Computed example of a mutant assay.
Amino acid sequence: MSDALTIRAITRQDYDRWLPLWDGYNAFYGRSGATALPAEVTATTWSRFFDAYEPVHAVVAESGGTLLGLAHYLFHRTTTAIAPLCYLNDLFTADAARGKGVGRALIEAVYDEARRAGSPRVYWQTHETNTVAQALYDKVAERSGFIVYRKTM
């Protein structure tokens, strides 16, 4: 990357550059083709970033006018702390930006937002097969040891 990397809050004008990253993120996790998210989910996700009543936020990584990555995060209450926790819901970088510090910069930006909000913890999940991402995550956070269970309704 010859141009400086900027991490910033997403704006409404970013939609056309955000959407390919969002689609890439969903494809990475097998949500494409017949299993793609409904368009309504994408539209609702996008609108939540700009709704002051929603706890969902987004930052993007930009260089030379190109969006290279995204991070979506949200704040939620918990029974183990007074201040809300920060959940890093989605993190994705374009293929060309991998291994160049974009993912780390996005994580650090979420850490900064969590500190500003008084959140005592940032946490996230990744798939057990996502070993490339885990190499970064092991450098910037600690594994909690928790196993995730879920039931689709």
Rank of each mutant, 00 (worst) to 15 (best):
A96M: 08
A117G: 04
R150E: 15
S63M: 07
Y149D: 10
A71C: 01
A105R: 14
L88S: 08
G145W: 12
G145P: 05
F49K: 08
N130I: 11
Y29W: 06
L85K: 09
E113G: 00
C86T: 14
R77W: 03
A83I: 04
K100H: 15
R104P: 00
D14V: 01
G24P: 07
E40R: 09
A27Q: 13
Y53G: 13
A27Y: 03
S2K: 10
C86N: 05
P120L: 07
W22D: 00
S144Q: 14
S144N: 06
H72L: 07
G64D: 04
F75S: 09
E108D: 11
G24W: 06
V122C: 12
G65R: 10
Y123H: 12
R17S: 11
A39N: 11
G64F: 07
A109Y: 01
G33M: 11
Y53H: 13
I82R: 10
P84M: 11
A117R: 10
P38H: 10
N130T: 12
W46V: 03
L136D: 05
G101C: 04
R12K: 14
A96E: 15
D112E: 14
R17T: 04
A52Y: 03
E113H: 12
K151Y: 09
A141E: 03
G103I: 02
H57A: 02
F28V: 06
M153F: 14
T66L: 06
Y111C: 09
Y137T: 02
T42N: 10
A9N: 13
E62K: 01
T45L: 15
I10L: 13
Y137S: 01
E113T: 00
R77I: 04
R77M: 04
T35G: 04
P84Y: 05
A96I: 10
P20C: 08
K139Q: 15
A61D: 01
R121K: 15
I82M: 12
L136S: 03
T11V: 11
R31A: 14
A83S: 12
M153E: 07
L85V: 13
H127P: 00
F75D: 08
F28T: 08
F92R: 00
A36M: 07
A133H: 06
A109E: 01
D3Q: 11
L67A: 02
R98V: 07
P20K: 06
T78L: 01
F92S: 01
T131M: 08
Y111T: 01
G103C: 08
T35Q: 14
